[in-house]
Amino acid sequence: MRRHLLSAADLDLGDATLILDTAEQIDTALAGREVKKLPTLRGRTVVNLFFEDSTRTRISFELAAKRLSADVINFAAKGSSVSKGESLKDTALTLEAMGADAIVCRHSASGAPHRLAEWVQGSVINAGDGTHEHPTQALLDAYTIRRRLGRLDAVRVTIVGDVLHSRVARSNVVLLDTLGAQVTLVAPPTLLPVGVESWPAEVSYDLDAVLPKADVVMMLRVQQERMNASYFPSVREYSRRYGLDARRMATLPDEAIVMHPGPMNRGMEIAAEVADSVRSTIVEQVSNGLSVRMAVLYLLLGGAHMPDGAVA
């Protein structure tokens, strides 16, 4: 493992498998226990540096660090010196001076965690940067698929929706390819990024044609807050062509699962009856996220400090 987790592309097959295996061991070690706490990271400090709103990711990282007995500081840009104009660099150096061993960073600007990693000594974990990457989400998705289907190799994963604005899709395409899965992206042409043909994934515009051949369907949230133009005619039109409803779900193979990174727009990209069905792993993804983030924190902070790039 490297010192930082900035991008799903940083992980080779060995690293990614190590993280998933570690998450599984942590899961079994804590299963059925009343006290779900481990002393592993006692005395370490983890800072949650969130410049963008988040519920599940921030809480998930906070709980993961606390379960490993690390001290957690939550830093939200609102109400901090950032609103007085302090730069990312000065904020980072301040946190480092206070002894942060790891900084979990979410930022609306793509690449912010990479810059951060150049300035600080501790580990930096990318918890979502703009429309770029969200590696721990991809890891928890891969972990969820492996737990449900028992494998990742040659699993056919269809990712549907707003690929253009989705860091989840970007990280997932890279990581799932590393792990041997076959990814198909389905989206209206306006919601596919430039250069998508160079990604290790197939592209389709026809959801109905792809579903019968999918082991996993991952629905993406339509990110209206990032949309400054009209990418599709209307919500109804989008939902009719790219939404997953009960009729479409029935065309999936028997074992196939439905995933969503959350938060969902029920009735838009996913129908409520689909979100609440037995195929849906949406709630599992949240609890798996906790195990995967504990694994990442353990692997980055658990050992002795190693020079950058060294393999543990």
Partner: peptide
Amino acid sequence: GLRPLAPT
């Protein structure tokens, strides 16, 4: 150095 976990 870092140690891999074993099953509990």
